[in-house]
Nucleic acid binder design. Structure first.
Length: 581
DNA sequence: AACTCCGCCAACCGCGGCCTC
DNA sequence: AGAGGCCGCGGTTGGCGGAGT
């Protein structure tokens, strides 16, 4: 027989785990009644077997006297809710707090802090009589000195009869991971997928899990999920190249501004009352995820921590993790790679794009959102893990590869350079595919030294969001980069129809063009360009860029188009040129 | 036993969307 | 159209309790 200790004085919430212990699941509302029953018997220990969960929902119109966690409270209980509140507050541990905020109830200042069982009972009673919603009326009509928000939160997180309290089961943990992989930090959506669980629970679980794993230097997601989503990405996001240049630019260079633009455009609305439109954002994940993560069971909870010890420094590029602050609005390290298009391109994508999938429809916003939120992983991680395997290089190579295919003969990109680049890309991709996580520990790029340092000055590129304040704090250059990007994006009126024309705005395209290469030739005029380039891509970029530029300039379809002489401070010219393409 | 550190989690806060007037 | 209220979501905070020293 299990007993619930009633020594707790800070509300019911901390009783819940005890109640939940074992397979028994009862609601907190039921616990209210339990406590009431226990108070009547004046027992300090309540036998669980005596609990009756069936009565949790039906509350009497006038709550009978009930226990407020202490015998003193019991003796002070009256049938009047406000009196109960007063007594409860006087006896509750939050009395100091309550007194510190002034008069309680009756239109006075609203109480804050932990809920007492008396308040819980009042709220439960009110909801049972009037139903959910109209939370501001609770305070008016029930005597509770709590704001509507607080009432709603308390009800939703603790008093709802259909809540499942207690620790997450391994199955639920797996589900959370999968859902997070699919949705990012959409806790409410995740909670909707997990009946009986609240967004707060899930959020807390995730945050603590992230912290734990971060401390352990382990990846957030088990390799299986990474692999599954990676594969998923292959069959989902084949049309990214068709995304307007503005989007890619925003993606590629990221920033608080362009990022927000992108997210406002690409992320589904916060609310999705109408439907679960995103049910199939990642069909493979969504549908019977266990099928897609067959090996995940071997990583219950922290089981996967046993794996990938090889990645001693996980996601060094993730500023969130680096900071020990897991903040949210960014997708998780790999659920958030809107920053660089290159990081979004899986090897398979590159392959599929390279081989051309012209019929591929433009992804829906949701799918794009999914792409941004969930994908990338090995590559992004390897990118971030590997100083030698910058995503930028892949972007350049990819772009070269893509241009070769998409432009066909019109743009003769089938030069040796392109072939070499494509081969290198294939090689790199193959390497990535084969080595998977191992690459993290020893990511020897087939391209040897590369643009490794390109992004070293701006870590967010390797898998984090730009919209975090601390990212700016740590990487002040990002601000300047953002400004440059903003400037570019605002200077040129980009629309989807001109996406191809505006391709030159894509950073990878820029890299492949001779814009940068010519910068030195034009002397001081292009100091701005140099600065911008350095700002955008990091100081170390220059050296690496020369190589890239040299590579690309040789075939330089861009050069033929005459856009090689554009400078960042003359974007109107660039726009004009784009129109003439 | 006393103290500190850390994890967990309930609750608060700010923001933004929706709805009504 | 827009102002205000309501509601929900996501991020953050602070308290509690357990573990470690």
């Amino acid at each position: 027989m299990k007993y619930i200790s009633l020594r707790e004085t800070s509300g019911l919430s901390r009783l819940s785990p005890s109640i939940e212990d074992g397979d028994t699941t009862i609601t907190t509302a039921a616990a209210v009644r339990r406590l009431r029953l226990s108070s009547e018997s004046s027992q300090s220990l309540l036998p669980l077997s005596a609990l009756d969960t069936s009565t949790a929902v039906s509350q009497p119109a006038t709550p009978p006297p009930f226990n407020c966690d202490s015998k003193e409270e019991i003796s002070n209980m009256t049938s009047d809710s406000e009196d109960k509140m007063s007594e409860d507050c006087m006896d509750s541990p939050s009395v100091e707090e309550a007194s510190s905020i002034g008069k309680l109830g009756g239109g006075g200042l609203l109480k804050k802090g932990p809920w007492t069982s008396a308040e819980d009972a009042i709220l439960v009673d009110y909801v049972n009589r009037h139903g959910e919603g109209n939370w501001n009326a609770v305070q008016k009509h029930s005597g509770l000195s709590r704001c509507g928000k607080s009432c709603r939160l308390r009800w939703a997180n603790h008093l709802r009869p259909d809540l499942r309290k207690g620790a997450f089961t391994p199955k639920e943990e797996r589900q959370i991971i999968e859902l997070h992989a699919k949705m990012g930090n959409k806790w409410a959506r995740m909670a909707a997928e997990m009946p009986g669980r609240t967004d707060n629970e899930i959020k807390n679980y995730w945050n603590t899990r992230i912290k734990r794993r971060h401390r352990a230097g382990l990846p957030i997601y088990p390799p299986d999920i990474s692999q599954a989503l990676h594969e998923n990405q292959q069959c989902q996001n084949v049309a990214l190249p068709d995304i307007p240049a503005s989007g890619l630019l925003a993606q590629g260079l990221g920033s608080s501004h362009s990022d927000s633009l992108m997210f406002s455009m690409l992320h589904p609305p916060k609310r999705f009352r109408e439907s679960r439109e995103s049910e199939c954002l990642i069909p493979c994940v969504n549908s019977s995820t266990a099928d897609y993560f067959p090996a995940f069971d071997q990583y219950p909870d922290d089981g996967c921590e046993k794996i990938t010890q090889l990645s001693s420094s996980i996601l060094p590029g993730s500023h969130a993790l680096l900071n020990g602050n897991f903040s949210s609005s960014e997708p998780m390290p790999w659920a958030m790679n809107p920053e660089l298009p290159s990081l979004q391109y899986s090897d398979a994508q590159v392959g599929s794009w390279g081989t051309g999938t012209p019929s591929s429809p433009l992804p829906s916003l949701d799918s794009v959102s999914t792409l941004i939120q969930s994908p990338l992983t090995e590559q992004a991680q390897s990118d971030s893990l590997s100083r030698r395997n910058s995503g930028l290089l892949e972007a350049v190579l990819y772009e070269s590869h893509t241009l070769k295919s998409s432009k066909n003969s019109s743009c003769d990109l089938t030069s040796n350079v392109s072939v070499v680049a494509g081969d290198a890309m294939d090689s790199l991709s193959q390497n990535l595919r084969e080595t998977q996580w191992e690459i993290h520990s020893d990511p020897i790029s087939p391209l040897g030294h590369s643009t490794s340092s390109v992004f070293s000055e701006c870590t967010p590129i390797s898998g984090s969001s730009f919209d975090e304040p601390h990212s700016v704090e740590i990487f002040p250059e990002c601000l300047a980069k953002q400004e440059a990007v903003d400037w570019v994006t605002t200077k040129c009126d980009v629309n989807e129809e001109n996406a191809n024309q505006m391709m030159f705005l894509r950073p990878d395209f820029l890299l492949a063009s001779n814009w940068f290469g010519h910068s030195t030739e034009r002397g001081r005029e292009h100091s701005v360009l140099n600065d911008t380039r350095g700002t955008l891509l990091g100081e170390d970029f220059n050296g690496d860029c020369k190589q890239i530029s040299t590579m690309s300039v040789s075939d330089s379809s861009c050069q033929k188009r005459g856009c090689g002489s554009c400078s960042w401070d003359d974007m109107s010219t660039a726009c004009e040129l784009s129109e003439n393409l």
